[in-house]
Simulated scan of single mutants.
Amino acid sequence: MTAEAMRLLKELAAEGVSPWWEACPWEPPTVVDAVSYGFRGIRMPLGAPNGMVRAACDALRASGGFVAFAAAAFDGVDDPSAWVAAARVLRSGVDRPNLLVGVPANRAGIDAVAGCLAEGIGVESTGVFSVPQYRAVLDAQRTGLERARARGVEVEPLGVATSCDLGALDAAVNARLDGLPDAASNALRDTAGLATARLLYRTRETALACGRWQSLRESGVRPPMLLWAETRPEQVRSLVSWNTAHALTLETAEAAARGGGLEGDTLMGRHEQSARVLRLLAEWNVDVEAIGVELLRARFG
């Protein structure tokens, strides 16, 4: 990795943004290399052996970083208990406290979040594309953390994250816009992802101000993290705010570093203009929330 890219990772961390390595089987760096570059978290690829996941957890544990790895509920994918069982097996196999078990943010996966956290299993909810969906995830996260605390589980080390694949959302929205005859709709290309991210951020900050979340924070619970995935290089600079993360391939990190410096906090207080973007898209019969549902179903059924 170039010095410019490593400097970008440091700048992100200074702004409260945790740079994560989106590990790809075809990329040559090792986990140790990724940590030395300045990555604070790692998303492991599907099919990675438990030993590799365990090594990644060990490499990041001293710095407080997390490793996300997707669970696989082969049977009963519509059953929350199947996802909890799959998470339990994965956590037992890796046996590291800084593992985040990835579960889909569909109905079964959201219901499983509370069960996982109640057992002391950190969770990454994957595939969130809308505010209503994220509210449900936040409710499940809060409930699970409250159950864990009531059961005497040590809540301070528990990691909780929610990821939104902004690149996939933008690509799906752009495809709808491309099918429209009026060229004026082109101005809305590549706007859905950023608008959604800002609305998700506002949703989280509003939730954290409520009494139940404040009580959890007083107990030492970490605030839930928002993780942006599949971002384009230019989006890295426009998605900056406290307790967020970027999952970046090395290629994306290098390209983002060539694009200039960060723009400061770009998420806080931008919810009203973001809501207007989604309303404008709706006027073109592009329902971003419905597209998010389609993306989730395509991935997880």
Rank of each mutant, 00 (worst) to 15 (best):
residue 1 M to I: 10
residue 2 T to P: 09
residue 2 T to V: 10
residue 8 L to T: 04
residue 11 E to D: 15
residue 14 A to Y: 00
residue 19 P to W: 08
residue 19 P to S: 14
residue 20 W to T: 04
residue 22 E to D: 15
residue 26 W to H: 14
residue 27 E to A: 14
residue 28 P to W: 03
residue 28 P to S: 12
residue 32 V to S: 13
residue 39 F to K: 02
residue 40 R to K: 14
residue 44 M to D: 10
residue 44 M to T: 10
residue 47 G to D: 13
residue 57 C to H: 07
residue 58 D to I: 09
residue 59 A to H: 08
residue 63 S to F: 06
residue 71 A to M: 05
residue 72 A to M: 12
residue 91 R to C: 11
residue 99 L to G: 03
residue 102 G to P: 02
residue 104 P to A: 11
residue 105 A to Y: 01
residue 108 A to M: 12
residue 111 D to T: 06
residue 113 V to I: 15
residue 114 A to K: 03
residue 121 I to D: 02
residue 123 V to C: 09
residue 124 E to M: 09
residue 127 G to W: 03
residue 129 F to M: 00
residue 133 Q to E: 13
residue 140 A to C: 11
residue 146 E to G: 02
residue 153 V to P: 07
residue 155 V to Q: 00
residue 156 E to A: 15
residue 164 C to W: 05
residue 165 D to S: 12
residue 166 L to H: 01
residue 170 D to A: 05
residue 174 N to S: 14
residue 183 A to I: 10
residue 190 D to K: 06
residue 190 D to T: 03
residue 191 T to K: 05
residue 193 G to D: 06
residue 193 G to I: 00
residue 198 R to K: 13
residue 203 T to H: 02
residue 207 A to I: 01
residue 211 G to S: 14
residue 214 Q to N: 09
residue 214 Q to M: 10
residue 214 Q to S: 12
residue 214 Q to A: 12
residue 217 R to W: 07
residue 219 S to T: 07
residue 222 R to K: 13
residue 223 P to Y: 02
residue 225 M to I: 04
residue 230 E to A: 13
residue 230 E to H: 09
residue 235 Q to A: 07
residue 236 V to I: 11
residue 240 V to W: 00
residue 241 S to M: 02
residue 244 T to P: 01
residue 244 T to A: 04
residue 252 T to C: 11
residue 254 E to G: 09
residue 256 A to F: 09
residue 260 G to D: 01
residue 262 L to W: 03
residue 272 E to M: 10
residue 279 R to W: 03
residue 286 V to Q: 01
residue 288 V to R: 05
residue 288 V to T: 11
residue 291 I to P: 00
residue 292 G to Q: 13
residue 293 V to P: 04
